[in-house]
């Protein structure tokens, strides 16, 4: 029903993102999707990868601040209105969307990642509308 997303705290300073991604690469983590939220002081790097547990441990070891969040991965078809349809279902069910970003799985096609306030209700509402949410193993 949901997938694991790793978030990493990145200071908004020159070279910090490079430092973090190099570290991720050196630990053999293959990022499948990412988004970055930024403010004046800091950014939050959000990653979807195959083995989130290993990736998180590696990042922690490297002194990075991380957190793991369950997010929804929703399959999306390649045509106009697909995203709107999903968001309408969520809005109808009074689900608050914190952020969203796109994700392309070689195995399973295009997905949108949604961070919502209530995963269970959101998944149920989407299921009710015939929209499927993916599990970790569906994606890789």
């Amino acid at each position: 029903m949901s997938v694991k997303q790793i978030s990493v705290f990145i200071e908004n300073k020159k070279g910090k993102l490079a430092e973090a991604t190099r570290y991720i690469a050196d630990n053999n983590v293959n990022m499948k999707a990412l988004s970055i939220a930024d403010t004046q002081d800091f950014g939050i790097l959000r990653i979807i990868c195959e083995d989130p547990k290993a990736a998180e441990e590696a990042l922690k070891e490297g002194g990075f601040i991380t957190t793991v969040t369950d997010v929804l991965a929703v399959a999306i078809s390649d045509k106009p209105g697909s995203l709107a349809a999903i968001l309408e279902v969520l809005a109808e069910a009074n689900i608050v969307v914190e952020y969203t970003y796109a994700f392309l799985s070689a195995k399973a096609g295009a997905y949108m990642i949604f961070r919502v306030d209530d995963n269970q209700s959101a998944a149920a509402a989407l299921a009710g509308a015939g929209i499927k949410t993916a599990n970790q193993e569906d994606l890789f």
Binding site: Q5, S7, I44, K60, I65, Y99
Partner: peptide, 18 residues
């Protein structure tokens, strides 16, 4: 310095902390 326990994945939460 932010501690790992205080970190969340949303800008909203961290900005509110500041």
């Amino acid at each position: 310095e932010l501690s790992p326990e205080q970190f969340t994945d949303t800008v909203k939460d961290l900005s509110a902390k500041e």
